[in-house]
Nucleic acid binder design. Sequence first.
DNA 1: ATGGCCGGCGCAGCCGGA
Length: 259
Amino acid sequence: MQIATWNINGVKARMETLLAWLREAAPDVACLQEIKAVDDQFPALEIEAAGYHVETHGQKGFNGVAILSKAKPDEVLRGLPGDPADEQARYMEAVFSTGSGVVRVASIYLPNGNPLGTEKFPYKLAWMKRLQARAESLLALEEPLVLAGDYNVIPEPRDARHPEAWTGDALAQPESRDAFARLVHLGLTDAVRAVTDEPSFTFWDYQAGAWQKNNGIRIDHLLLSPESARRLRGVRIDSHVRGWEKPSDHVPVVVALDV
DNA sequence: ATGGCCGGCGCAGCCGGA
């Protein structure tokens, strides 16, 4: 079973790229972030014609997440629990039945947190605290679980081509890194780091020729519960998609699980 | 050497992103 995460930076502007990648990669589940559309605007018919079931949690203009899947999920949850006043669409879960039991998948669009010194950074940290609580609850279920998404955290200096350029950025603050580390230390496995120690980037800015210079960062992560880490077959970053026409600034990251 | 973008909204630039 292939499970992918991809911040597509606007689903309406990215349909050709999205359909081409779905045809090429044929993931079983694709978690999307930054769909930048309300549910009614999501081009569901075209995705369904490509063989995918569509579940969305959208919002006008920005944010928004979706989960596309070959099989219809048994259950869907929209919104990160823990703050009823939070109206930003950044989190959803879907539960799938497989031959060997259920697999739970979350599509996460963690707040960016920039600029520092504004209310955005505390919002990021508070959101991470809520994610921590959700992860604790889900780990207690002892199910195969994949927390997939754009975490907007550069976990370590080696996850940036130019780490010194990010020292004043919310993505690399000690508080952001500590919160990410606390999440992992609950017993989750960072899938990419489970298979390689090499620099592995998932985002290249549109500006300043970042892609051409490989000036990238690793901020899109798939965190696996022990039950899914045990079934990990492989991990892949589809970096070539960054070189396509009309690319997102992020690329898909894919895990293969033995289920 | 420096600086370089993009999508949404809505029809001009501004907001938000990372």
